[in-house]
Each structure stands twice: as C-alpha cells, then as structure tokens.
Design a protein around this nucleic acid. Structure first.
Lengths: 222, 222
DNA sequence: TGTACATCAGTGAACGCGCGTTCACTGATGTAC
DNA sequence: TGTACATCAGTGAACGCGCGTTCACTGATGTAC
C-alpha cells in the first residue's frame, strides 16, 4: 500500500537510468535528442515541447540539460537539425533509385511524402518549430534552399531529356513542393478524410504539375 | 515621474473600457472574439492563445471571460467557428464570379488562397487549432466536408462541360485542395522564398491538376 | 599498496512567471412601492 | 417624488500547476604520491 518515496515525490526521475561513465558526458546530448524525438513521435506539439518534458523523458533532472545545451532554444535547435538531416538523407536515398530523370524525380517526391507520413513528428518539427533550420538562415538560407535546388535540378533534367513539358524548372519545382507539403500536412491533420493511396496521389500530382506524358492513370480507365 | 497605480500594478486592465449597458452583457462575446482575432492577426500562434491574453486584449479581467464562455476551450471554439464562417463566405463570394464552370472553379481557388494570404492568422486558426471545426466532427464532419464537396462539384462541372480532362472529380479535388493548402502555408512560413505571383501560380496548379486545356502559360513563351 | 585529492556527471531546492479557474465581492442601473 | 431593493456587468485575490533557469551540492571515478 505504501508507495515508494520516489513515486510520491515528483522527482526520482532517475528511474532506471545509470549515469554515463566519466569522459562520456556528451552522450547525454544524443540521449536528449532521442528523448525529444520520442515525444514528437508520440504526437507532442513541437511548438509546445518543454525542456522539462524532454528531461523527464530522458530520465534526468531538468537542470542537467544545461550540461549539454546552453538553453532550451539550443536543445530544440539541435533536435530540428537532427530531424532535418534524417529527412534530407531519406529523400536523397529515395531519389538515387531510378534509371531515368522522370523516375528519379518521382522517387524523390515519393520518398519525401513517405518519410513525412511515417515520421509525422519529424516532419512537423522541421516545418513548425520556430527555430527550424528552414525558417532560420536569414536571406540566403543554405539548408532549405539547397534541398530545394535538388528538386529544381530534378525537374530540369526531366525537361532536358524530353520526359517533361518544356517549362521553367524553378517555377515547376515551386509548384511541386507546396503540393507535396499540402498532401502530407492535410493527411496528418485530417486522418479521417478518405484520401486516395499516397503513392498514386503523388504520382498523379507530380505528373500533372511537371507535365509528364504518363496519362494521369484514370484517363484510360474511365 | 511617478507612474499611476494602474500602470504599476498589473491589473487595471480597464484602461479605457466602459462597461456594457445592462441587458447587453453578451456584447462581450463578440468583443472577446474580436480581441482574439486581433491577436491572431498580429501573429500569435493559435495553439498558444491564452485566455488571459485574450482578456487582456479585450480590456477586461480574466475571470470575466467566464461570463460569456464556459471555458477557454469554448472561447477558442467560438473563435475558430467565426473564422471558418468568414473563410467559407469569402470562397463562396469568389466562386460566384465567373460565367463558366472553369472560371468559377479558378475563382473559388483564387478566393481560397487570397483569403489565406490576406488573413494568415485566420487561416492558421482554422487549420492549426486543435478544436477546429475542421478537425472536430468525428466521423461525418459536416463543416469541412460540405466545403470540400463544393470543390468536388466545381471540378465535376468542369469535366461535364468538357473544360477539364475526364477524370474522377473527387480524386482531382483531393489533389487540388492539398495543393492550395501547401501553397498558402509554405508562403506564410517562408516569406523570404522567391515565390512566383500567387494568382499565376494558382492558375497554373489548378490548370495542371484538373487538366484544363489552357496551356500552363509558359509553353508558348519558351 | 594506501590515501588524499581533483574531476566530472548529475541533483534538489528554489526563484519568478503566466497559466486556467474559483470565489466572494463591488458598484452602477433599473424597478416596486 | 423618494427610497429600498433586485439585477446585472464586471473585478481582485487566491489556488495549484508547469515552465526555464540559477545555485550550491553530492557522490562516484580516476590520478598523484
């Protein structure tokens, strides 16, 4: 009947955690980023993530965060950067499959959307966190802009090879990206809506916007 | 040099406000919704809107909110509903201009995006507030679903009139909506990005996704 | 080999703040007699 | 016409909570002699 002192008082967050060996204090850095990612994966609103909640999830006392990060802001910046890097890598891995420009473009777009669908917390933290790498970087924002350039190049390759309608690659890319973004954010926000299968939708949308000759699937079956 | 007591203490929120005449207590309802809208227009994050901040903006003491609303939740629900209604009305007004199905569809989409661009706080509160009318409504969510049906009907009218490519109207509408949503949310989040003019982009995207015969503008000029 | 000491990972208590909500109240306006 | 009273819009103080951050500390591990 008697609860342990640990359960009664709010502290004792050191539930099972064993402290890192000497010289390995920085391991806590990754542990904290991992704990934050776990919270995000569980559906926490990125904009509301608190330092104390992350510390709790990591099994340490709140002030211990300051051993690795200068501030809450710095912790969250590191979290965003980690997710941004993972996102970019997933897209690049996806875009590498495919033997011609059109299938590489499609594979990249599919990888973008699949990653967002499978890691909604990750996608959210990248796009909604005020301190996001995308939103940071004043004028010449390298991180996000470089990633966008990959899309522009993919579209340009399709146009050059004759696989896509002749057009301004930047303009087409600036249409595809928002379309993909809208697809994944609305699916997350309205999971009850009868969305068509993701892959098929992405293929149709990218095809329609880039002017890929592949008939948008239904024109033959109607 | 001596600040007034009102300035020194945190209260005295009754800066200039005159209380409503007897029998008109419900006017405070609209004042509160208006105050919340003002905060949103100034860029407040909808998910972080606090009852106390709204009361402050309305010039009343925090507990006075409870004279008109059962809880913070109820206040925010009313705020979302007001903005949702204004949004819908703007779209309907827009879609009413135009003499043929294709121009009505385009006008509706343009009205959607223009409203979102001109009232970013309004659009945000509709789509980001956890208690939004869109996200509420369990299975058969009337508010948002009915609005979507208008888009489906618009697409169907274009197809029937031969203005758009033969296709499944629902599927096309389920592509157009996310595309518009992505366009307006990314523009808000990355205002520094060199976006093309909104109207032109919307015309091209809707044209591409619905298969309107109008060549997407650039094909003649390249 | 044993002991004193430095290093280092991590803690607990405390701070001031804004939050949502409750409670008993105030004071102006209208109504009954 | 004057006075007592009811109604009604709105308030101020207080509550318990979670937050970000600070501070002085603890206690295990490694090193010097």
């Amino acid at each position: 009947v008697a609860a342990s002192a640990e359960e009664q008082s709010g502290h004792g967050a050191t539930s099972g955690r064993i402290r890192n060996p000497q010289g390995a204090g920085e391991r806590l850095r990754e542990e904290l980023i991992g704990a934050a990612s776990r919270l995000l994966a569980e559906g926490s609103d990125p904009a509301q993530l608190s330092l104390r909640a992350v510390a709790r999830a990591a099994g340490i006392a709140a002030p211990s965060v300051y051993l690795q990060f200068e501030s809450k802001e710095a912790l969250l910046r590191a979290v965003v950067d980690a997710h941004f890097a993972a996102f970019q890598e997933a897209i690049e891995r996806g875009a590498a499959t495919g033997n011609d420009p059109a299938s590489r473009l499609l594979a990249g777009c599919l990888a973008y959307c699949r990653y967002a669908a499978e890691h909604p917390g990750s996608y959210r933290v990248i796009f909604e966190m005020p301190s996001s790498a995308l939103l940071r970087g004043e004028a010449d924002d390298p991180p996000g802009r470089a990633a966008f350039q990959v899309l522009v190049d993919g579209v340009a390759a399709c146009i050059d090879s004759g696989a896509a309608r002749a057009d301004d690659p930047f303009r087409v890319a600036a249409e595809i990206w928002p379309a993909l973004h809208g697809i994944v954010t609305l699916r997350r926000q309205l999971p009850g809506f009868p969305w068509p299968p993701l892959d098929e939708q992405v293929r149709r949308v990218v095809g329609g916007l880039a002017g890929l000759p592949t008939p948008p699937l239904a024109s033959g079956t109607l």
